[in-house]
Nucleic acid binder design. Structure first.
Lengths: 190, 190
DNA sequence: TCATCATGTTAGTTCTTGCTAACATCATCT
DNA sequence: AGATGATGTTAGCAAGAACTAACATGATGA
């Protein structure tokens, strides 16, 4: 948190993701950012412009390359790494994701950006499973496995993010490692 | 679609779930319902009242009893049934769920209603897994398994609901049955 | 010291929207 | 036919929110 613009953008992300675009006023954002409303309008000409610039600014990309290189062709260990990396991106982008969910109709062009990651992860994972199949470690269809794995990861993430009132006492980390254990066993040849 | 009130409530659910409470105007709802704005206010005194009555009206409960009685202690078959039932409730309540997601701050009391189902499902599933463990079919912790299973089911549901722009060509039904196959194998004693 | 620049303050304009009042229309029931 | 009740129409009020203009303040740097 540094420049005035950053303060405003941070505040807007927090509020937009909490309440949605229309429900938030520029006055609220200014107050949250600790500046005057006038300053907000001087930096971003309009509320909508602020919204768009907030979206543009805060998108974190996964470190695909590092992830790729760290794989060791041990199913459970690799899946743990991949999942951790995916959870990491999702978590870092959680506010943006919520913001997007609550304001879908306002930024159709933004979907492409947001959905780039799952799609890239899917490609990566498919290739990984395919190679594992070639090595004789598994038999199932690589693409199906990839979609399954990513969807589950997303389910775990989203559940822990939004449904915090559920009386699920198991925490997400435990859930994830359990899931991977089961998944690994479920797809391995014995 | 029958009485005037129903028409209005239906329209409000559609719009609230699409755009969120604040972004929808009473005029829009009236138009969508095919009535005049005045009629809307005559039936529901305020926009917020309409919102609350919409929430109250459209909550579908799962048929727990029928589900319970249909179980046959065959892991894969039972899980398919349980998952199908869960997906069914989720799907029937999809608009309400979206509506809730986009308007969290407006109806805190409603969370309890929405989260009743996952919690009941979890109890049911935990008991089921416990019994299966007693029968020697599995060894893992029943509660953990239940949470895993439900979270995944929710992930599959939500992905297919919201992320329809993902280039995941595998459809949800295939995903679900694949997942259950893997899950069953993953937790079974061999 | 003085000019510059970012910010705050205040007042105000305009548009939207929730909501009401008053009257008109029209179908139904007695 | 006439009363009743549900709905439509039109006009309008009150509040809020986006956004602007004009001026004040206060820090920074030449």
């Amino acid at each position: 948190m540094c420049t005035t613009e950053d303060k405003i953008i941070n505040a807007s992300i927090v509020l937009f993701s909490q309440k949605g675009y229309t429900a938030v006023t520029t006055m609220e954002i200014a107050k949250e950012a600790g500046v005057s409303q006038m300053t907000l309008f001087r930096h971003f000409e309009s509320k909508h412009n602020l919204f768009e610039r907030s979206l543009d600014k805060f998108v974190f990309s996964p470190k695909f390359k590092a992830l790729f290189e760290s794989l060791e062709w041990d199913l459970e260990r690799d899946l743990n790494k991949i999942c951790a990396s995916y959870q990491d991106v999702l978590y870092k982008n959680r506010k943006i994701i919520l913001m997007h969910l609550k304001n879908e109709e306002l930024n159709p062009h933004f979907e492409a950006v947001l959905y780039k990651f799952p799609n890239e992860f899917k490609k990566l994972l498919s290739r990984y499973f395919e190679e594992m199949r070639n090595r004789g470690a598994i038999i199932e269809n690589p693409e199906t496995l990839a979609v399954n794995f990513l969807t589950t990861s997303f389910g775990l993430f989203f559940t822990s993010l939004v449904m915090n009132k559920l009386t699920f006492d198991t925490d997400i980390q435990t859930c994830i490692s359990n899931y991977i254990k089961i998944f690994t066993k479920g797809i391995s040849l014995l």
